[in-house]
C-alpha cells in the first residue's frame, strides 16, 4: 500500500509573529521555518504504517518555495521514501493546493493520504476535506487513532464533546490531530540517509493547475492588544475585584 503525505513549510510554532507595518502580511524575513507540526504527526503515522508492514511506500509532497526541500528532507529523515516538491512563489490557497494534490494522486495512485488537519500559518483546516471532495473519496478528519487494513481504515476522531469512530473504505483522506502520535526525532544516520533519497522537482504548470489566488487579501492587521493587568495579593482581594467588575 502506498501512502501519500502532504507536508507544508510554515513559520516555526515557537516564533512570535509580527505583522508588517504596511499591513500586507506578516514578517517572514529571517524567521525560523519548520514543518507544520500536524504534518510531522502525519508523517510519523505513515512511517509507522510502513514499519508495521501495512504500507510499502511513503511519498511526501510539498507545495512551496525552493526551501521547502528542507521540509521534505525532514520527512525523509523520519523514514519517508521519496519526495515531490511543486515549486510556487506564492502561498497557494487551500483549493489550489487540493487541486495540485489531486493531480499528484492521479500520477501516484496512493491508497491512503495522511495529512495534517491544519497548517498553523493560515489556520485554514481545509485542504484535506477539499482533497477528499475533489477525489470523491471518503474523509476522516481530526484523527487521534488510526487502524488500517487492506481495504479500510478505522479512525477515531476528536469531536466536540468527545470521540467518534468511523470506518472509511480505501482510498481515503485522513487528517491528523495532535494526539494521533508523538513524532520521532530523526537520528543522525537517518538524516544522512535522507540526503540520498530522491526529491522530484515540479511546477504547478506541470500539472496544469491554476494557482492564482481567488481571495484578495486587503490587509493584515494586528489584533487588539491586551495589556497586563495587576497582581493581587490573595484570593479575597481577587473575589472583591471580580465582583466589582460584575463577572461574579
Amino acid at each position: 500500500m502506498k501512502v501519500l503525505v502532504p507536508v507544508k513549510r510554515v513559520i516555526d510554532y515557537n516564533v512570535k509573529v509580527r505583522v508588517k507595518p504596511d499591513q500586507t502580511g506578516v514578517d517572514l524575513a529571517n524567521v525560523k521555518m519548520s514543518m507544520n507540526p500536524f504534518d510531522e504527526i502525519a508523517t510519523e503515522e505513515a512511517v509507522r504504517l510502513k514499519e508495521k508492514g501495512v504500507a510499502t511506500e511513503v511519498v511526501v509532497v510539498s507545495i512551496g518555495p525552493q526551501q521547502a526541500q528542507e521540509t521534505i528532507r525532514t520527512a525523509l529523515a523520519m523514514g519517508a521514501d521519496r519526495g515531490i516538491l511543486i515549486v510556487t512563489d506564492q502561498d497557494a490557497e487551500p483549493l489550489a493546493v487540493a487541486k495540485l494534490l489531486k493531480a499528484v494522486i492521479a500520477e501516484e495512485s496512493p491508497n491512503l493520504v495522511v495529512m495534517g488537519k491544519q497548517a498553523i500559518d493560515g489556520d485554514n483546516n481545509a485542504v484535506g476535506q477539499m482533497l477528499a471532495a475533489l477525489l470523491d473519496w471518503p474523509q476522516a478528519t481530526f484523527a487521534s487513532k488510526l487502524e488500517v487494513t487492506a481495504d479500510k481504515a478505522t479512525v477515531t476522531r476528536e469531536i466536540d464533546g468527545g470521540l467518534q469512530t468511523l470506518d472509511v473504505s480505501l482510498p481515503a483522506v485522513i487528517t491528523a490531530d495532535l494526539r494521533l502520535n508523538e513524532p520521532r526525532y530523526a537520528s543522525l544516520p537517518n538524516i544522512m540517509k535522507a540526503k540520498k533519497k530522491e526529491i522530484a522537482m515540479k511546477t504547478a504548470a506541470d500539472y496544469g493547475v491554476d494557482v492564482s489566488p481567488k481571495l484578495k487579501v486587503l490587509k493584515v492587521t494586528e489584533p487588539p492588544k491586551r495589556s497586563a493587568g495587576i497582581k493581587v495579593a490573595d484570593a479575597a482581594e481577587l473575589v472583591g475585584k471580580l465582583k466589582s467588575e460584575g463577572v461574579l
Binding site: 483549493l95 483546516n125 476535506q129 466536540d160
Partner: peptide, 21 residues
C-alpha cells in the same frame, strides 16, 4: 464546530470555491 469544520471545506471544494475559515 468540529462538525462544521469537517464538512464546510468539502462543500466548498464541490462548488469549486475556497472556504473562508
Amino acid at each position: 464546530t468540529s462538525a462544521g469544520k469537517n464538512f464546510a471545506p468539502r462543500i466548498a471544494a464541490k462548488l469549486d470555491v475556497n472556504q473562508i475559515t
